[in-house]
């Protein structure tokens, strides 16, 4: 999923400071799963923002909505009914959702309430970790199902570097050494000999190197 984390309340509050009526929009997809911008987080943030403004002797009216998917125009369209009644929109979706609202409703300011972080998986309750950087040319088949681009701090394709110790990365004891994991996995799969094959320098064009990316499926158009 795409993970996100709420911005500091101060930052959000200062964005909407000039406004009295806001539309606070969550998303039922990824940000709900990572507890950053679903229905519940919308309600929490709404209460917090209202309390901040009550403290200042002001009244903030908040319309709370959570869309099925904020990155799809079909769902964003449903905000049209409410957009005229508000001064600004605050989105709790990932950057894709924020941009979709901004694209559809050009006349109103849209502010992000979360920082979009990474594509990751849930390691255990309350912990999400980066797993994929969307490089556009998946090499997981070569590396035992563990991505060195997303999970090695230096994104080495021929790791590990000389800094790993006890299976941890040199930058922090909290970070697993991706290449240590890859090696263990290769051993478990009995493909250790594949380790010595040099993975040549990557073509980054399918990644962000080729400019903003697009997928076009003619059969679906």
């Amino acid at each position: 999923m795409i993970t996100a984390e709420r911005k500091p309340l101060d930052e959000i509050a200062s964005c909407i400071e000039p406004y009295n009526r806001i539309l606070l929009v969550g998303c039922n997809e990824c940000v709900t799963v990572c507890a950053a911008g679903g229905r519940k987080e919308v309600a929490m943030l709404s209460s917090a923002l209202q309390m901040v403004s009550m403290k200042q002797g002001k009244t903030l009216s908040v319309v709370e909505m959570t869309l099925e998917r904020q990155c799809d125009p079909e769902y964003v369209e449903s905000l049209a009914l409410h957009i005229d009644g508000v001064d600004a929109v605050v989105s709790m979706a990932c950057g894709c959702g924020v941009q979709e609202i901004a694209r559809r409703f050009g006349q109103v300011r849209v502010f992000p309430a979360v920082n979009t972080k990474f594509m990751g998986a849930s390691e255990r309750a309350g912990v999400w970790a980066e797993r994929c950087q969307g490089c556009g040319d998946c090499l997981l088949g070569l590396t035992g199902g563990i991505c060195p681009i997303a999970r090695c701090s230096k994104r080495l394709m021929n790791g590990p570097c000389g800094g790993s110790g006890d299976g941890k990365c040199e930058i922090s004891g909290e970070v697993d050494c991706a290449w240590h994991l890859i090696w263990e996995r290769m051993k478990a799969l009995g493909i250790e000999d594949r380790y010595e094959e040099v993975i040549s320098a990557k073509d980054w064009r399918p990644a962000r190197g080729g400019g903003p990316r697009k997928i076009i499926r003619e059969d679906l158009q």
Binding site: K40, A43, M44, S47, A48, M54
Partner: peptide, 11 residues
């Protein structure tokens, strides 16, 4: 008790 119950009570 959801955190929201507490937030809304305070609000």
């Amino acid at each position: 008790v959801d955190p929201l119950h507490v937030m809304r009570a305070l609000m």
